[in-house]
Design a protein around this nucleic acid. Structure first.
Length: 339
DNA sequence: AACTCGGGGAT
DNA sequence: ATCCCAGAGTT
């Protein structure tokens, strides 16, 4: 029987926990998929990706037998595409050698760091190891009223004591649920908090000034102009190379002085500390430039593209189908071209 | 320790 | 517009 803070936390968790699709099981495969998707990504965004992924790759064997492009296509739009490659590599290692049975074994898998190893081991194996994410760091900073700018080490020591019980996986997930729904970054709901009586920040009325905010990085402004080449019903794309953003994924080439263009759209997207103002134009050509890969709309659906380029593609397909609507008015925008 | 790597939702 | 999210890997 857990007592004190962890006991109050678990009682709250049993009553208030979020019902999430990956919480229906403690099998390592779905748990690893969810934990990988959740790295630096919000729960609401992950849920539909997780459901689709488990339908497309229901078992670790089915994932291991897939090719990288198919895997990346399932991941497209989630960002941090290294995670998808790591997950594929994990699947192949696991099919070869079996699931790791210890924290140290999990740490050796690609894309599995201390957080993910702790989460999977505690949830699937019942190992008493902490899982320190941004939520847990924030909860710790407030409970301990710790103003430090580097909380990882102290939060780990603190959480090690909390998970030393019969339900380490639930303690870890309870801390994250608490951080996500009650001990929020802004305006924490201390009135609804099950551990407020253990919280030093609450006692001192400092919950809104902890944790200490990190210095903001300066944002670099960039402008990217893209061209969507169109020829005989096919679209020209290129694969991003090593060292480029979105290496290995597909998208559109930079505009290079093309005339006779159709304006498509202008929008901004943010890549870490870069703010890019992107614009794209459509160019209808009569020759398929050989340095590009020419794809039908059907093939484009299955191609892994980062979100901004998928957005450009959809805009281009809309423009093409509008101008190409025939006398019978039967031309339709493919469902994949909807926003 | 500092940096890269995506994208989106909440405020 | 800013913050920050169930972080990991590299330099």
């Amino acid at each position: 029987m857990a007592t004190g803070l962890s006991g109050a936390l678990l009682r709250w968790y049993d009553a208030e926990r979020r019902e999430l699709p990956w919480r229906r099981t403690t099998e390592p495969y779905p748990v690893l998929v969810s934990e990988t998707m959740l790295q630096q990504t919000t729960v609401a965004v992950v849920v539909p990706y997780f459901e689709r992924w488990m339908t497309r790759f229901p078992t670790v064997e089915s994932l291991a037998l897939s090719d990288e492009e198919t895997v990346l296509a399932q991941w497209q739009g989630l960002g941090y595409y290294r995670r998808a490659r790591s997950l594929l590599a994990c699947a192949r290692l696991v099919v070869e050698s079996g699931w790791p049975l210890t924290f140290a074994g999990w740490l050796e898998l690609p894309g599995v760091g201390k957080y993910t190893a702790g989460a999977v081991c505690s949830i699937c194996l019942g190992e008493r190891v902490p899982a320190i994410d941004g939520n847990v760091e924030r909860v710790f900073a407030r409970v301990a009223a710790d103003p430090s700018s580097s909380l990882k080490s102290a939060a780990t020591t603190w959480a090690r004591g909390l998970v030393d019980c019969n339900r380490p996986g639930d303690v870890n997930q309870a801390l994250m649920d608490l951080g996500a729904t009650v001990c929020r970054p802004k305006n924490p709901d201390c009135g609804a908090c099950p551990v407020s009586r253990f919280c030093s920040a609450f006692a001192g009325g400092m919950q809104n000034s902890l944790p200490t905010p990190k210095p903001t990085k300066t944002v670099v402004q960039l402008t990217h102009e893209y061209v969507v080449p169109f020829c005989k019903g096919q679209v020209g794309v290129r694969q991003f190379g090593p060292g480029e953003w979105w290496a290995g994924l597909y998208g559109f080439p930079a505009r290079n002085g093309e005339k006779q263009v159709t304006d498509l759209l202008t929008f901004t997207h943010t890549v870490t500390h870069h703010k890019v103002t992107a614009s794209a134009v459509l160019v209808r050509t009569t020759k398929m430039k050989p340095h590009l890969q020419w794809k039908s709309t059907c093939e484009l659906e299955r191609l892994p593209m980062p979100a901004p380029h998928r957005k450009i593609l959809n805009s281009a397909l809309n423009a093409i189908y509008e101008s190409g609507s025939n006398a019978t008015g039967t031309a339709k925008v493919p469902s994949s071209a909807k926003k």
